[in-house]
Design a protein around this nucleic acid. Structure first.
Length: 260
DNA sequence: ATGCCGTACCGTGTACGA
């Protein structure tokens, strides 16, 4: 079984690239982020034509998360318990579904914008709430197979950015953000991709501007975190840099994990 | 070749991204 996550940066602009990749990638479950559309706008048909069922959570042109699966989608949940709101509104940043026995959460962690912005505080609260809720899932069932996948908008170590100097005053690298990420790892959700994609200079995101991709100026911010029972099954993982190349790519690459 | 910012919105600019 192969599970992937991909920040697609608009599914309507990217549906051909995404489905073209699915045809080649032998992926059973694809979690998507930043679909940038409402539920009624999501292009479901191209996925159905390839044998995938799709669930989507999108309220407007911002955010948006989806899961496509060819191995079933059950117990769909929009948002996680205790998920913080932004300006008193729920945002489309978390979608959970059980696919062939694995609880998959497609997550789009708030960006934070700048360190002095209310959005940064929201980001930290969002991550703390996710940690608490996810920890509860494992307390209830220590053998649960859970995959927390998506765009975490955090570079956990200095090795995960092309230049520490470039990002020194930015979000994504601050100690509180890194602590929030570590807290989720400490809650027994391990980065199951890193052992198969060692650094340095291994990234999942490259800015569109200033030739960042060909110059190797990226960040590692997209992760697949697995519960102990899930991590035990991982046999391989990869970051598909090829999908950042060519015409009209997303600024993120897909990340794939293979389970026994 | 990895290639010079993108996407969405009732829009002729602004918000958001990281």
């Amino acid at each position: 079984m192969r599970i992937a996550t991909w920040n697609v940066n608009s599914i309507r602009a990217r549906v051909d690239r995404v489905t073209d990749w699915l045809e080649r990638a032998d992926v059973d479950v694809l979690a998507m982020q930043e679909t940038k559309c409402s539920d009624d706008q999501f292009p479901t048909m191209p996925f159905v034509a390839l044998g995938y069922d799709v669930v989507h959570c999108g309220f407007n042109q911002w955010n948006g998360v989806a899961i496509a699966s060819r191995v079933g989608i059950d117990d769909v949940h929009v948002g996680f318990d205790g998920q913080p709101t932004w300006s008193d509104s729920a945002e489309a940043r978390a979608l959970g579904a059980t696919c062939n026995g694995v609880r998959v959460w497609s997550l789009y962690v708030p960006n934070g914008r700048t360190v002095d912005d209310p959005h940064y505080t929201y980001k930290l609260e969002w991550l703390a709430a996710l940690r608490d809720t996810a920890r509860g899932w494992l307390t209830a069932d220590p053998k649960a197979q859970i995959a927390l996948v998506g765009d975490w908008n955090i570079a956990p170590t200095d090795e995960d950015v092309w230049s520490v100097e470039f990002y020194k005053d930015s979000t994504h690298v601050t100690p509180p953000e890194r602590a929030a990420f570590s807290a989720i790892v400490d809650a027994q959700f391990a980065d199951v991709v890193r052992p198969f994609t060692p650094g340095p200079a291994v990234y999942t995101y490259w800015d569109y501007t200033q030739l960042a991709f060909p110059k190797g100026r990226g960040m590692r911010i997209d992760f697949i975190l697995g519960s102990p029972a899930l991590a035990q099954r991982v046999t391989h993982a990869e970051i598909v840099r090829e999908e950042r190349k060519g015409k009209a790519p997303s600024d993120h690459a897909p990340v794939v994990v293979e389970l026994s």
